[in-house]
Amino acid sequence: MPETLQLWMRHETRPSEHRAALSPRDAGRLVGHGVRLTVEDSPQRVFPLAEYVAAGCSTAPPGSWATDCPVEYYVLGLKELPPAPARLRHRHLMFGHAYRGQPGAPALLRRFADGGGALLDLESLVDDDGRRIAAFGRWAGYAGATLAVLRHRGALTAPLTRSTRAELDLRLRPPHRAGDGASALVIGADGRCGAGACEALRTAGIEPTRWTGPGTGAVDRSAVLAHDILVNAIGTAVPVAPFLTEDDLDDPGRRLSVVCDVTCDVGTDRNALPVYDRVTDWNRPVRRLRARPRPLDLIAIDNLPSLLAAEASRAYSAALWPHLLRLGEGSAVWDRCRREYRSALAAVGQR
Rank of each mutant, 00 (worst) to 15 (best):
T236N: 08
A237D: 15
A237T: 14
V238R: 11
V238Q: 13
V238T: 14
V238S: 13
P239D: 09
P239L: 10
V240A: 15
V240D: 10
A241W: 13
P242Q: 01
P242S: 03
P242D: 00
P242T: 00
P242M: 01
P242V: 01
F243M: 15
L244I: 12
L244P: 14
T245G: 02
T245P: 07
D247V: 09
D247P: 02
L249E: 09
L249Y: 06
L249G: 03
L249V: 09
D250N: 02
D251P: 05
D251Q: 00
G253I: 04
G253Q: 10
G253H: 09
R254M: 01
R254P: 04
R255S: 00
L256G: 10
S257A: 03
S257M: 00
V258D: 04
V258K: 06
V258F: 01
V259G: 04
V259S: 04
V259E: 00
V259Q: 03
V259H: 04
C260H: 14
C260S: 14
D261E: 10
D261W: 12
D261L: 09
D261V: 10
T263Y: 09
T263L: 14
T263K: 13
C264G: 05
C264L: 11
C264P: 10
D265R: 03
V266L: 14
V266P: 12
G267F: 11
G267A: 06
G267H: 07
T268S: 14
D269E: 13
D269L: 06
D269M: 05
R270H: 09
R270C: 10
R270N: 07
R270S: 02
N271P: 00
A272E: 14
A272H: 13
L273Q: 08
L273K: 08
L273H: 06
P274R: 14
V275I: 15
V275N: 11
V275T: 11
Y276M: 01
Y276P: 02
R278D: 12
R278G: 06
V279A: 15
V279P: 13
V279W: 15
T280C: 02
D281G: 12
W282N: 01
W282Q: 01
W282E: 07
P285A: 07
P285R: 06
V286G: 09
V286M: 12
V286F: 10
V286C: 13
V286L: 07
R287V: 12
R287Q: 13
R287C: 11
R288P: 03
L289W: 06
